[in-house]
C-alpha cells in the first residue's frame, strides 16, 4: 500500500502544476499586474510611477510565463509564474498582495470553517441515513412516495433560498438565534446553530435520495433474504445487515470530502458573516488578490487529491476484498 500511496503522491505533482498553471492563466486573462496594482493603490490619483514601484516590490514586474530577454533556463524561471509558484510546493504561501501572511490567515480562518462544516456533515449524515432507512423500511408505501417527492423538491430549491428563508424564519420571525455573526469560544455556539441547520436542510434532499438508493440496492441481496428467512425482525435486518453493508459507499464518500471541509462554504460563510476560508476566498477574488486566490486553489487541489487517496485507503479498510497495488 505504501508504494501505491507514494505513486499517487507523485502523480499529484503534475496535477498540481497543471492546476496552478490554469489558475494563473485564467487570472491573468482578466487581470494584468497593472490592474492588481491599481486595486491595491486605489483608483484616485494613482500614478504610473507608483504602479511600477508596486509591481517591482511585489514581483509582478517580470514577464508572465516566458522571459525572452533572459539567458538559458532563466527564460522560464525569471517569470511571475515560476517565482510565484515554486514556494507553493513547500506550502509557503507567502504574503498576500496587501502584505498579510497568507499562511497565518489560513490557520486562523480554517477553524470557523470547520466549526460549521463538521457539524453540518455529521448532523446531515445522521439525519440523511436515518431518514433514508425509514423510507426503505416503508418502501412502496405512501410514506416512500411522499418522501421522494419531498426530497426531489428539496433538491430543486436553491441553496440561497434556504439561507435567506432560514434567516427570515428562525432569526427574524422567531428570534431564536442571531441572524448572522460569529464569536470566539462558547459564544460561537449560538451563531453556529442557524448556518448548520441551513446547511443540513440544503443538503438533506440529495444525500437522503442517494442513501435510499444504496439501501434499496442492498435490501434485495441474498444475504438479506437469508436474514429474513432466519426470522429476524425487519428492524434488525435493516440496522444490523443492510445499514452495515450500505455504509461502505457512504463512508468512503464522506472520507473524500473530509479534507475539503477545511476550505469552508463560500455562500454560507458570506451570508452568515463567518470569518472562514470560504469568505476569505471570495474576498480575495473580489479584491483581485492573486496570491490568496492561487494559494487557496492550490490548497483546495491538494486537499482534494488527499481526499481521493484517503477514499482509496478507506476502501481497503472497510472491504477486505479490495487491495491497493
Amino acid at each position: 500500500m505504501t508504494a501505491y500511496i507514494l505513486r499517487r503522491l507523485l502523480y499529484a505533482i503534475p496535477i498540481l502544476i497543471g492546476v496552478n498553471l490554469i489558475t494563473f492563466v485564467l487570472f491573468f486573462v482578466v487581470n494584468s499586474p497593472d490592474d492588481m496594482a491599481r486595486m491595491q493603490l486605489g483608483d484616485k490619483r494613482v500614478t504610473q510611477e507608483a504602479i511600477d514601484t508596486w509591481k517591482a516590490e511585489h514581483g509582478y514586474d517580470r514577464p508572465l510565463l516566458y522571459n525572452a530577454e533572459a539567458p538559458g533556463l532563466q527564460r522560464l524561471t525569471d517569470t511571475i509564474f515560476f517565482q510565484k509558484s515554486l514556494k507553493l510546493f513547500a506550502f509557503d504561501f507567502g504574503l498576500s498582495d496587501s502584505g498579510r501572511d497568507i499562511g497565518y490567515d489560513i490557520r486562523q480562518r480554517m477553524w470557523p470553517s470547520l466549526a460549521i462544516a463538521l457539524p453540518t456533515l455529521l448532523v446531515g449524515l445522521a439525519i440523511a441515513i436515518s431518514y433514508a432507512l425509514m423510507i426503505v423500511f416503508f418502501r412502496a408505501t405512501y410514506i416512500d412516495f411522499g418522501s421522494v417527492v419531498l426530497l426531489v423538491a428539496m433538491m430543486s430549491i436553491s441553496g440561497l433560498f434556504y439561507i435567506i428563508g432560514g434567516q427570515f424564519l428562525i432569526g427574524k420571525l422567531f428570534h431564536l438565534v442571531p441572524i448572522s455573526g460569529y464569536d470566539r469560544g462558547l459564544e460561537a455556539l449560538k451563531f453556529l446553530i442557524l448556518p448548520v441547520v441551513v446547511g443540513v436542510a440544503a443538503g438533506i434532499g440529495s444525500s437522503t435520495r442517494l442513501y435510499r438508493t444504496f439501501f434499496l440496492e442492498e435490501i434485495n441481496r441474498d444475504y438479506v433474504r437469508t436474514a429474513r428467512a432466519k426470522g429476524l425482525r425487519e428492524r434488525v435486518v435493516l440496522f444490523r445487515h443492510v445499514l452495515r453493508n450500505a455504509l461502505i459507499p457512504i463512508l468512503t464518500g464522506v472520507v473524500a470530502v473530509l479534507p475539503l471541509l477545511f476550505m469552508g462554504a463560500l455562500i454560507i460563510e458570506s451570508f452568515f458573516g463567518v470569518p472562514g476560508l470560504g469568505s476569505y476566498t471570495i474576498d480575495a477574488i473580489n479584491r483581485q488578490d492573486f496570491s490568496i486566490v492561487r494559494a487557496m486553489v492550490f490548497l483546495g487541489s491538494v486537499l482534494y487529491i488527499l481526499g481521493l487517496i484517503l477514499t482509496d485507503i478507506s476502501y481497503t479498510l472497510v472491504d477486505p476484498r479490495v487491495r491497493l497495488s
Partner: peptide
C-alpha cells in the same frame, strides 16, 4: 456584514 439582508434585519 457582507450581505445587505442580514444587515438590514439586524
Amino acid at each position: 456584514e457582507q450581505e445587505s439582508i442580514p444587515y438590514w434585519n439586524k
